[in-house]
Simulated assay, not measured.
Amino acid sequence: MSSPSDIPRDIPGDTPNANPSRPVMQLLARGLQLWVRQQCQSIDSLEIRLEGSPLQLLRGRLAGVRLLARRVVYQQFHLELVELASGPIQVHVGNLLRGQPLQLEQAFQIQGQVSFTPAGLTRSLAAPRWRSLADSLGETLLGIVPLGGVRIHHDKLVLTALAQGRPDPIEQETTVASVGGSVEIRCVAGSPSYLLPMDPGITIGAARLEAGMLQLLGAARVSA
């Protein structure tokens, strides 16, 4: 993956007069930006870089796309940072030239990294879509529901909950690791542990706590 500084804000290419493919590149970039935003509930900032030769781009084939997005809400997950690179993508350039929305011809692969802040994790687990997951985490790892929140302390993910009749929250330090393409959250004492349910189209290759965030590295298949 490229670092954020490796992804330029401008679409690559020569000056408009020197490169006749630039209008098509701009159309593709705008079309992809709109398509990505439509997949999400909100995105604060989004940068996209197209990869491929001018001839490939004119034919609607991209060698790949690199994406950098900040403060993304996707399916009620609150993501602080998303850094992705795709495989080849086929698009209908003719539709774009006629002012129609971007249409992808086939599914494609992506790989990269998503990062959660503790506040983002807490908001995600409190969302209606993921409330049952939060309850399962709390019941399995804390022995109590509902799960109150999440914080990061050094290299530990700390789960918290409030128990009736107790003024102080119950806390459980856990570790995170990639296991079988998913994420395992395990109590520091060794047990119990909880393996997150994972979409079959997503594979997590690494999970780590770094820079005060939960970082997941992996790959996924995106439907057209």
Rank of each mutant, 00 (worst) to 15 (best):
L68H: 09
A69P: 00
V72C: 10
Q76P: 01
L79I: 08
L81Q: 14
V82A: 12
V82M: 10
E83L: 14
L84Y: 06
L84G: 03
A85C: 09
A85T: 08
G87W: 07
G87C: 09
I89W: 03
V93N: 11
N95H: 12
R98I: 02
G99I: 04
Q100N: 08
P101N: 09
Q103K: 04
Q103A: 13
L104R: 07
F108E: 12
Q109S: 15
Q113V: 09
F116R: 02
T117S: 12
T117R: 02
P118E: 02
L121T: 00
T122A: 09
A126H: 14
A127G: 05
W130S: 00
A134Y: 04
G138T: 05
G138M: 08
G138F: 07
G138W: 05
E139P: 00
L142Q: 05
I144T: 13
V145L: 03
L147K: 04
L147C: 08
G148W: 02
G149L: 06
H153L: 11
L157F: 06
L159K: 02
T160W: 05
T160D: 12
Q164T: 07
G165Y: 04
G165E: 12
D168W: 04
D168E: 13
E171S: 12
Q172D: 06
E173C: 05
T175K: 11
